[in-house]
């Protein structure tokens, strides 16, 4: 029985009938299947964390719980996957961050002159910049990495004679070089698109107020362009984070490299699950930071 509304004395309309159709039953069964799979996967993964959790909890336990926990730590064989490879994952994670961070930084620095050249009205500047962007956006990052790593590797005598071999000898420098060139092409396009998106009226208005071109650019155009460019920039960083897994195949022990190494010793598929979890955590952190930055940049638009 549903009570009538005390103020109006009216009863709410009866609830719609929701019969147990075949579709609905199938839906529930499938949902239950996924839920059980998910719970199984979680317990399977968290089994790895039992020992560290018990050790952390030990000082706070007393009586039979303390006996139980210390017994379990002492007698149980905790040969867990994370116990053996956890440190490797952390070092791989740091290498991945280093690769992505440095590449994005160098890429950003490179992208400014490229974007400027690309939107220049002199063809001698805009054509090569266009070709550069066309090449790096049109070929796979993997191919670019191999070209730089193995391609330059076969020109050792020439590189040695001009004193550049130390740079191309090191896989880490090669990957930073390849990734910086790649991301600079994408970032140049993002930057150019965002700046050109600002209407000419803004330039003209600033000119009418007697502002110089650099002041107009940095104080009026760029802040507005950044609002437009922010999301594409975020996408580019996420693509870079995921693309950095390529470093593993030219002998760098980044997150993916360590994952492959751990997998090759254990053939345990949770190696890849942990890698996926860590990549997801990086991307999720970035997403949240980006939400904050966007709120800050567009605070004047919120009513």
């Amino acid at each position: 029985m549903i009570a009538p509304n005390p103020r109006t004395g009216l009863k709410p309309p009866p609830l719609a009938k929701r019969p147990w159709t075949a579709t609905k039953i199938t839906g529930h069964v499938l949902m239950a299947f996924w839920a059980i799979s998910g719970v199984y996967l979680l317990t399977y993964l968290l089994g790895n964390l039992e020992k560290p959790i018990l050790e952390l909890a030990l000082p706070f336990l007393s009586g039979e719980w303390e006996v139980y926990a210390s017994d379990r730590i002492a007698t149980h064989k905790f040969d867990s996957f994370l116990g053996r490879y956890g440190d490797k994952y952390i070092s791989g994670f740091l290498v991945t961050l280093k690769i992505v961070g440095l590449s994005l930084l160098f890429g950003a620095a490179l992208s400014i002159p490229i974007a400027a050249a690309r939107s220049s009205k002199w063809k001698i500047l805009s054509r090569p910049a266009y070709a550069y962007v066309y090449f790096f956006r049109g070929t796979p990052l993997l191919a670019q990495t191999f070209l730089i790593y193995y391609g330059f590797g076969s020109f050792r005598p020439e590189l040695q004679s001009i004193g550049l071999w130390w740079f191309f000898r090191d896989a880490f420098y090669c990957i930073i070089f390849a990734f910086s060139l790649n991301t600079s092409a994408y970032q140049a396009e993002i930057l150019r698109g965002a700046v050109q998106n600002i209407s000419r009226g803004q330039w003209e208005g600033a000119q009418a107020l007697g502002l110089s071109k650099p002041v107009t650019f940095f104080k009026i155009i760029l802040p507005q362009a950044l609002m437009v460019a922010l999301r594409p920039y975020g996408n580019e960083i996420i693509l870079m984070i995921k693309g950095s897994a390529i470093a593993a195949i030219i002998t760098i022990y980044d997150l993916m490299g360590e994952t492959r190494r751990a997998y090759s010793r254990t053939y345990d598929f949770q190696a890849y699950i942990w890698a996926a979890v860590i990549y997801l955590m990086i991307v999720e952190t970035l997403r949240r930071v980006w939400d904050r930055i966007e709120a800050r940049l567009t605070r004047h638009l919120i009513r």
């Binding site: 193995y150 590797g153 002998t251 490299g257």
Partner: peptide, 13 residues
């Protein structure tokens, strides 16, 4: 230790 996917790559290096 540097790990390569196949012997071809370590031969190049």
């Amino acid at each position: 230790l540097k790990l390569y996917p196949t012997p071809d790559e370590y031969k190049l290096d």
